[in-house]
Structures are given as C-alpha cells and as structure tokens.
Design a binder for these strands. Sequence first.
DNA 1: GTAATAAATACTTTCGAAAATAATCAAAGC
DNA 2: GCTTTGATTATTTTCGAAAGTATTTATTAC
Lengths: 214, 214
Amino acid sequence: MTLAEKAYVSLRKDIVEGCFSAESPLRLADLSKRYGMGFSPLREALNRLQAERLVTAESLRGFRVSPLSLHEFEDALHARLLIETEALRLSIAKGNDAWEASVVATFYALRQQTKRKGGDVDELRTRHHAFHRSLLAACGSDWLLDFFERLYAATERYRIPALLAAGPQKRDIDSEHGAIADAVLARDANRAEAILREHYLRTAVTIRPAMETA
Amino acid sequence: MTLAEKAYVSLRKDIVEGCFSAESPLRLADLSKRYGMGFSPLREALNRLQAERLVTAESLRGFRVSPLSLHEFEDALHARLLIETEALRLSIAKGNDAWEASVVATFYALRQQTKRKGGDVDELRTRHHAFHRSLLAACGSDWLLDFFERLYAATERYRIPALLAAGPQKRDIDSEHGAIADAVLARDANRAEAILREHYLRTAVTIRPAMETA
DNA sequence: GTAATAAATACTTTCGAAAATAATCAAAGC
DNA sequence: GCTTTGATTATTTTCGAAAGTATTTATTAC
C-alpha cells in the first residue's frame, strides 16, 4: 500500500470518527507530523476526500473538515433511504445462498460485539458497517453501493456528537437489526423496506435534537 | 484557480469527451507535456477523478481511464433514473418562479443551439447539461445533485462512441426535452417523471447496440 | 528453442525546497 | 483613536530531483 493510500484510509477514519472537529483546518504541517509523511501523499488523500465531500477546499487556503449541519444530515438520511431501499430490493431479488449466509454471518458478528460489555467501540463500528453493507451487497449495482458508502460515512460523522449529547441509547438496536435480517432472509422486500425506513427515521429522531443544540 | 484545479477541469473534460480512449494509461510524463504542468497538480486531479470513478488507479502502476462496459452503462442509467426522478419530484414540489424561469431559459438556449446547423458541439454539450441540471436544481438536496453530476458524467462518456457507431439520430430530442419542460412547468410530477423515464430508456436503446459491438 | 536470471529501462511515488499567496502584526498618517 | 500601508510570518501550492517499483530486454543455462 502506498503512503497516499495509507493517508487516505487514516484521514478518512479520523474524520468519520470525529478526531478532528467539524470545520477545523487540516494544516499540512500538522498532518505531516501526525501521520509521519510528506505533503504529497497527504494532499492526494485530501483531494480524494474532497471529492467524497468529507473535506472542503478553498483555493490557496487549504483544506478543512466539512461542516456538520442539521440540514445536511437530513439530506443525507433522505438520500440514504432512497438509495438503500432500492438496493435492498435488488439484493433481495438477486441474492443467492452465499449472500444470505453473509447476512446471517455479519448480523451474528454484530450482535456478538454489542453483547460484549466494554468491548472495542472500533470493532463495533466495523461490524455495524459490515452488516448494513452485506444487506445491499447482492444488488448488483456498483453505483448504488458507491453512493451507499459515501452516505454511510457522511451520516456516521453525526453519531458521535449525537451520542455525547443524548446519553446512552434506549433503543434496542440489536432487535431492529434482527428484524431487518429476518425480513431479508424471508425475501419479503416490502417488510424489509418498511423496517429499514423505521430504523433510519428513529436514528434521525435521536440525532436531530443533538444538532439543534449545537 | 490553482494548477491542480485546472488539471482537474481539463482532465475531466477530456475523459468525458473521449479524448482518451477507455482503459488507456494516463502517464504522468505525457499529461505533464499535454497540460504544461508538473506531476503534483496532475496527481491531485487524478486522485479526485478516481474518487469520481472516471479513472482507476492501481498501486505503483499508475492511473488509467476507467473502462466502458454495457453493464456499467445500464447500471449508471438505472441509478440516474432513481436519482433524477426523485430530484425532479422534489424540484417540482419546491421550485419557485426563479427556478421555472431557469428551466425556460436553459431549454430555450439548448434549442437555439440544436437548431444551429454546424454549431459548436462543445456549446451544445454544455447547454444540454445545463438544461438537465436546471430541471433538478430546486430539489434542495446537495447529495442528489452531487450524484446527478457524477452519473451524468459517467453516462456522457458513452454518447460519443455510441453516436459514431449508430450514425445520425432519428429521434427528435428537442421535442422530448420540450415535453419534459412542459410537464415540469405544469407542475405535473407524474407526467414529468414518465417522460424523463422514456427519454432515458430511449437513450439506452441507442447506446446498447453500440456497446455490444465494441 | 525455452526457461530462468540479470541488467537496463520506464514509470510511479515521495520528498524537500522554492515560489506564491494569505494572514498577521507593526508603524505611519490622518 | 482609527485606518491604511508596509513588513513579517505562516501556509499552501508547485516543481525538480531522488527513491523505489514494475516492465522490458538481454544474457545465460539447459
């Protein structure tokens, strides 16, 4: 893996996880120290992230972490519903045995991690993403999967600030995920879509107040 | 405008317009000569284009123009329909007078250019894009507009090879555009969506055979 | 002739410095 | 005191060279 690729992976992770606060400038000298590399690979990574809308650039004034706003969050969530309900329908229509198995497997792995008290939050994050991705993985559309990844990253950025503001969850997210998996494995597209929609609207309700205070 | 931005604009244009054939390698030495700049701004542009899927990169083996394939074209067109029908509905619901005026204006400008025999093909391309964008411009969703731009560029790449293979058009594209504009200005979302869908499916019919021979 | 190895070449990637621009601070003028 | 101007500093952007990696060509051994 080249340095530019490492820079891209590290920066993306750190932005999505909120290590840099929103709108803070990403100065090359700082990043160079932090990641132990020269300017070139960092700038290449920043350009990629700019195309993904995780960072914004202004001519001759460098890069910043993209801002967070309630409007952008609602927009991203709306787009996610559009993309994911379609991809989920396609997946359910086209998915084979191996796909079903991966849905079962990623759901199981996710539940294992949520059960483990005091477990690695990073691992939980990874498994949550893997589960949601596996639901759509058989849709056969690279474009929809690409859009899913971008919207997932965009909305993931709102989770940490929201959790900090709202305190511990009252939702039983495991059982929501389980219900989606059940509907998917039953190949019931309408039910799966309805639950997925509920799942996201509930997330919106959690995050909205946290954004309004900020 | 920085050199990196110029490189991005030029490269994007040249790729979309087919100045480089699909899958051809984009060697830095060549690009440096062609655009008259060093490696750094070119690499930054290539990284952005990679994130937009117009170029593909392989570690330590550089960049190439992304391949064209029938499957990818149909995928992109399907995604366009999903995105654009939704954005169009939102635009029709939310658009104000100024938006209506811009639809009228861009349609008029487009028709002027199609009428001009032997006119600038580049100008026609610009106006075609402006018209389609203006239809969606009032949707209020940055994400949907962003996806529209990416899919538009992706599908535009197929037009030139297809036209070369299929010869002159038998469709009356002006009147198809006019019908969309009419439905939009009448705020008839269902009719607008139906015509837009027809419009794209007809495009698919034009391009499909050209892809199969290649 | 073919396969394996070694040398040469082509190309990508990365760095460090130079150039260019923006931001900050101090002094002068009103 | 306030604004303008000029100098200083901080930062981004770009280049050219160096380092590292793939690819091709040549050579040798079988």
